[in-house]
Simulated assay, not measured.
Amino acid sequence: MAKLSFLAGFGAGYVLGARAGHERYEQIRRGWEQAKDDPRLQSLAGMAQARADDAVSALKARMGGEPPR
């Protein structure tokens, strides 16, 4: 009897948790879709990319340039 009630409780928890998890996933996904199209985020991403490129260039210069191909 205890095993049956445990399985019933586990099943109910799984179903309810899966539904709540999917709804939260969709909420996060919609937020990301809105954020990635935001011009402010695009500007920040561009500045971060430029800084990363500068850092890589400076590191390559300190190490003697690019290796031969």
Score class of each variant (00 low, 15 high):
residue 38 D to S: 00
residue 63 M to F: 10
residue 28 I to M: 12
residue 52 A to G: 10
residue 26 E to Q: 09
residue 13 G to V: 00
residue 58 A to Q: 07
residue 25 Y to C: 04
residue 34 Q to K: 13
residue 9 G to A: 05
residue 7 L to S: 09
residue 54 D to R: 11
residue 12 A to Q: 05
residue 11 G to N: 06
residue 35 A to F: 12
residue 69 R to H: 10
residue 44 L to I: 01
residue 44 L to F: 02
residue 62 R to P: 03
residue 11 G to V: 02
residue 47 M to E: 13
residue 7 L to I: 06
residue 18 A to Y: 11
residue 29 R to L: 07
residue 37 D to M: 10
residue 13 G to M: 03
residue 38 D to Q: 00
residue 19 R to S: 14
residue 27 Q to C: 08
residue 12 A to L: 07
residue 56 V to R: 14
residue 63 M to D: 14
residue 29 R to Q: 12
residue 1 M to T: 04
residue 40 R to Y: 07
residue 64 G to P: 02
residue 38 D to A: 01
residue 49 Q to K: 14
residue 58 A to E: 08
residue 8 A to L: 12
residue 44 L to E: 08
residue 25 Y to K: 11
residue 62 R to F: 05
residue 9 G to W: 02
residue 62 R to D: 13
residue 10 F to H: 10
residue 25 Y to F: 09
residue 43 S to K: 14
residue 30 R to W: 06
residue 3 K to G: 11
residue 7 L to A: 09
residue 15 V to K: 10
residue 2 A to D: 08
residue 62 R to W: 07
residue 35 A to R: 04
residue 24 R to V: 09
residue 39 P to S: 03
residue 9 G to V: 01
residue 45 A to F: 15
residue 28 I to A: 14
residue 42 Q to F: 04
residue 58 A to L: 12
residue 30 R to P: 01
residue 5 S to T: 15
residue 19 R to G: 15
residue 15 V to C: 07
residue 26 E to S: 06
residue 61 A to P: 02
residue 50 A to H: 15
residue 12 A to W: 02
residue 11 G to T: 03
residue 23 E to D: 12
residue 39 P to N: 03
residue 16 L to R: 07
residue 23 E to A: 15
residue 1 M to F: 07
residue 2 A to Y: 08
residue 54 D to F: 09
residue 38 D to M: 00
residue 40 R to I: 13
residue 67 P to R: 07
residue 22 H to V: 13
residue 45 A to T: 04
residue 48 A to F: 03
residue 47 M to T: 04
residue 5 S to Q: 13
residue 7 L to H: 05
residue 63 M to P: 05
residue 61 A to V: 03
residue 59 L to W: 08
residue 35 A to E: 03
residue 10 F to K: 13
residue 36 K to F: 01
residue 10 F to C: 12
residue 8 A to V: 07
residue 47 M to P: 02
residue 59 L to A: 15
residue 69 R to N: 08
residue 31 G to F: 01
residue 8 A to I: 06
residue 22 H to Q: 12
residue 59 L to I: 14
residue 48 A to I: 03
residue 24 R to C: 03
residue 16 L to T: 09
residue 15 V to E: 06
residue 22 H to K: 15
residue 24 R to Q: 06
residue 59 L to K: 13
residue 69 R to W: 08
residue 59 L to D: 11
residue 55 A to K: 09
residue 17 G to I: 00
residue 9 G to F: 03
residue 46 G to W: 02
residue 40 R to T: 12
residue 26 E to A: 08
residue 40 R to A: 15
residue 15 V to W: 06
residue 31 G to Q: 03
residue 28 I to E: 15
residue 22 H to A: 09
residue 3 K to I: 10
residue 35 A to N: 01
residue 65 G to H: 01
residue 51 R to P: 02
residue 64 G to I: 01
residue 50 A to W: 14
residue 4 L to E: 12
residue 37 D to S: 13
residue 52 A to R: 14
residue 18 A to T: 06
residue 11 G to L: 07
residue 20 A to S: 07
residue 37 D to E: 09
residue 37 D to N: 14
residue 22 H to N: 09
residue 27 Q to N: 06
residue 37 D to Q: 10
residue 53 D to N: 11
residue 35 A to L: 10
residue 68 P to Y: 01
residue 28 I to H: 13
residue 57 S to H: 05
residue 12 A to I: 15
residue 35 A to Q: 03
